[in-house]
Design a protein around this nucleic acid. Structure first.
Length: 820
RNA sequence: GCCGGGAUGGCGGAAUCGGCAGACGCGCGGGUCUCAAAAACCCGUGAGCUAACGCUCGUGAGGGUUCGAUCCCCUCUCCCGGCACCA
């Protein structure tokens, strides 16, 4: 009597049993002999219920966690929520909801959905970054950074939405407009808090050399973001005022080719110099434009835009005076916000020079080509060559001369070799109220004063008014900010900004090691035991921000002696996105497919198998292509699970009364080997296909009257990380095991049984397959050749032509080469 | 523009120390069962030629290396992702 597969009967039952048994709890028992494994998934943001992206990511992460547990590891697999941030506040503004209630309600819903999906999270370690007992330590860490000078305040330009009257993060500015109301944002100078990540730029770069188990694209993105350039800083002088202006260049060897000088229009000196030069009228519109408009890139007209300021710069290497311009093509945020322009050897400078009629003077001549002539050049020459018109450096070759000139500048006191980074310090303050308050008190006598550790957390007040107003709800609160200065006791005000949510997520993985710890963000011994993370799983959208910040935090904690390693995530795995019809799912496109209805209809096991069988884990899944448009169509993996129930049931019924065939035993061992190998490389799709092959062969064996009990046990165990509910049912209820399949030992294989005793040998003639022979695996070359020559297919193809060569690769192939 | 990754049946994908291209699944076609449908199960399914045995073509395009190329090399086209006036 074959048991029918019914997920709705099976899944809620085991969900309950596992919770009662505490199956997923990591062991802190010091007598536990098992090695530890930390399986970490990027924690979700609690806006609404789980979406398809979560279903995909966590299906993979959970498969890894369950696999490692069966491999004999004591697995830590925690979950939490990245729970501060804009959506909660927007819900409050738009719909008058309490952000805290909204957030915790969503967390409960997502937690229930995770349970329903069979995720093996250790529920005793659950956290949310908006819990006061969590952000207490976010604030504590901020103060440690502050003490070290790694958190500081400075005035910087930020994105300001005049409609919503608030600062926005860069991510919240879409094509120059506020993501919420569509208003063009302005740039405003505001005093903000920063983390000094630039101090760690070189180390963040260097340590990537050893991170061989990260995806290349993520490493590349981080390298580009850090943007290291070697070059020199050179000091120019404004002829009319005598003030010195430093520039950064990667090509000091072209200094003798400078024919003009350019400030970014946002450079603070521009207004003053334009006034002096009598060109303020022409310059002002450019400055105003830059202030209110997001830069458009790739705009040809913009590249050549610019205004002569009416003043001149003195070139330190030859004393020449060159005209000074202000132009939008020079970025305030890179280098010093001012450049020396060498049109003969820089594309952008060349375009600008031709537009404005500035001289082009080549100082690098390509070897073995016609000499460059500045008057007739049609494009810049950025390549290598020999220096000319460069004083005593004439005849020196680039690129070697770059360092030579830099060293010479240093000797002369006119500049110095340096390294420039593109990365900026991390602006962490937000004029938002659903975040961790910055634990600083501003006192008119004492200045910036740290809130004493004993007074942490600085808690958010419960009664914030989220209606739109002049200042943030926190700043507007009638009493919250007014406190006594911790140092002098005088009247003072709290900082009313909160921290970027990326601060919250830069250390949550440490907290999981010591849930509820009262004496610090984590207990160092716990972190020492569990970390670094064994496997980190999450979306590639965090390739730069979160992963870079978390690496930065870890290095700072290392320097403080709090953790014994400098990289938190040696292994990183990025899942692909779930898209629909070639583009991302979104409300506006109306193409959102929800995972939970799928789970209710077909079961969590089927949902997980659909996700992992669809293709390589790191590739996108186009839901339209793999599932079609009919939600009631039975998924193929669901039918397969039904067949698995059939074969396991039948294998048990037959028991040992019928012998298991040698072929099936060998296939079972090959499957164990193959699936194990695939799990190590996250090739879930091919692992599942191997299990399907085994299922099909078991079906055949049973239909032929044979046994399949050994194969059945292996199948159930190997499938357990993917389909935890169905396999538990089969393991305990059908196979009658006393304890969970998820704590059973991952099956091992006998290498001697992995090798087939016969193999198909391909017989080729002139590289084309002409016959296939079944031969013994251990066949020797002479034997193989003899069989091949004699085969009907080879005879027919060779005909009466001469055999000129025979290639034998035992036992797989013989290729007979003819000439005829 | 620069960097990274791709292109294989109707579809998702498999196979790379160079050696049977298309595993596994979806879809589709045919069949069994059924009054019928669904489900389940069985068979078939790259294209073309052939009565059949078989043969030819085929992994984005072109070329090269090789007995043999989806795999290695060169040139090109297109697609996806990231960065984007970075001096």
């Amino acid at each position: 009597m074959t048991r029918r597969y019914d997920a709705s009967q099976i899944e809620p039952k085991w969900q309950r049993v596992w919770a009662e048994e505490g199956l997923s709890r990591a062991s802190e028992d010091s007598d536990d002999p098992r090695p530890r494994f930390y399986a970490l998934d990027m924690f979700p943001y609690p806006s609404g219920d789980l979406h398809m992206g979560h279903a995909e990511a966590f299906s993979g992460g959970d498969a890894i966690a369950r696999y490692q547990a069966m491999r004999g590891f004591n697995v830590l697999h925690p979950i939490g929520w990245d729970a501060f941030g804009l959506p909660a506040e927007n819900a409050a503004i738009k719909r008058g909801l309490d952000p805290k209630a909204w957030t915790y309600q969503n967390i409960e819903q997502q937690a229930a959905s995770f349970d329903r999906m069979g995720m093996s999270f250790d529920g005793s370690r659950r956290l949310a970054t908006c819990d006061p007992e969590y952000y207490r330590w976010t604030q504590w860490l901020f103060l440690r950074f502050f003490e070290k000078g790694l958190a500081y305040r400075k005035t910087a330009p930020v994105n300001w939405c005049p409609q919503d009257r608030t600062v926005l993060a860069n991510e919240q500015v879409i094509q120059g407009a506020c993501e919420r109301c569509g208003t063009m944002v302005e740039r405003r100078e505001l005093t903000q808090w920063f983390y000094k990540i630039t101090d760690y730029a070189q180390r963040l770069l260097d340590d990537m050399e050893d991170m061989v188990e990260w995806p290349d694209r993520v490493l590349t993105m981080q390298r580009n973001w850090i943007g290291r350039s070697e070059g020199a800083r050179v000091t120019f002088t404004i002829a009319e005022t005598g003030e010195e202006i430093e520039i950064f260049t990667t090509r000091p060897d072209t200094l003798w080719g400078v024919t003009f000088f350019v400030f970014s229009v946002e450079h603070p000196a521009v207004g003053r110099l334009a006034e002096l030069g009598g060109t303020l009228e022409q310059v002002e519109p450019l400055i105003a434009h830059a202030r209110t408009t997001k830069r458009e890139y790739g705009d040809e007209a913009d590249t050549k835009d610019g205004v002569f300021l009416g003043v001149h710069a003195v070139n330190p290497v030859n004393g020449e005076q060159v005209p000074v311009y202000a132009a939008p093509y020079v970025l305030m945020e890179y280098g010093t916000g001012a450049i020396m322009a060498v049109p003969a050897h820089d594309e952008r400078d060349f375009a600008f020079a031709r537009q404005h009629g500035v001289q082009v003077r080549p100082v690098i001549q390509p070897e073995g080509a016609d000499p460059l002539d500045g008057d007739v050049m049609t494009e810049a020459y950025p390549g290598e060559g020999v220096m000319v018109n460069s004083g005593s450096f004439d005849g020196h070759r680039t690129p070697e001369s770059i360092a030579e000139v830099a060293a010479w500048l240093d000797d002369q006191g006119r500049g110095h070799a340096t390294v420039n980074f593109r990365i900026h310090d991390w602006l962490l303050s937000r004029q938002r109220s659903w975040g961790a308050p910055i634990p600083i008190v501003h006192c008119s006598t004492c200045g910036e004063v740290a809130v004493p550790d004993a007074d942490l957390p600085v808690e958010l007040p419960a009664d914030l008014d989220f209606s739109l107003g002049g200042e943030s709800p926190l700043a507007r609160h009638p009493t919250w900010k007014h406190v006594a200065c911790p140092r002098c006791g005088g009247e003072a005000e709290r900082d009313t900004d909160t921290m970027d949510t990326f601060v919250d997520s830069s250390w949550y993985f440490f907290r999981y090691c010591s849930p509820g710890y009262e004496d610090g963000p984590f207990r160092p011994e716990d972190v020492d035991r569990w970390m670094p993370v064994g496997q980190y799983t999450g979306g590639v959208e965090h390739a730069i921000l979160h992963l870079l910040y978390a690496r930065f935090f870890t290095k700072v904690l290392f320097d403080m002696g709090m953790v014994p390693f400098t990289e938190p995530f040696p292994k990183l795995m990025n899942q692909g996105q779930v898209i629909y019809g070639g583009s991302s799912m979104s409300k506006s496109k109306g193409n959102i497919v929800e995972p939970m209805p799928l789970v209710e209809r077909w079961g969590a096991d089927s949902m997980r198998l659909i996700m992992l069988f669809a293709g390589p884990f790191e590739d996108d899944i186009d839901w339209k292509l793999i599932a079609g448009d009919d939600p009631n169509r039975r998924p193929g993996v669901h039918s397969w699970l039904g067949r698995v129930f059939g074969v396991v049931d039948e294998a048990l019924a037959r028991g040992t009364s019928a012998a298991e065939s040698d072929a099936l035993i060998r296939l079972t061992h090959r499957t164990i080997e193959g699936v194990t190998h695939d799990m190590e490389r996250f090739r879930f799709n091919t692992a599942i296909s191997k299990l399907q092959v085994l299922t099909n062969e078991m079906r055949t064996a049973l239909d032929d009257g044979g046994g399949a009990l050994g194969a059945a046990r292996a199948l159930v165990q190997l499938l357990a990380p993917f389909a935890p509910f169905a396999t538990e049912e089969l393991w305990r209820e059908v196979l009658g095991e006393g304890s969970s399949v998820h704590v059973s030992a991952w099956p091992s294989f006998d290498p001697s049984l992995v090798v087939e005793d016969t193999v198909t040998m391909v017989v080729q003639v002139d590289g084309k397959v002409r016959d296939k022979l079944e031969v013994a695996t251990g066949i020797d070359e002479a034997g193989a050749l003899e069989l091949a020559r004699a085969s009907a297919g080879a005879q027919r193809a060779i005909g009466d032509r001469d055999v000129v060569r025979e290639i034998v690769k035992v036992p797989r192939l013989v290729n007979v080469v003819t000439r005829g």
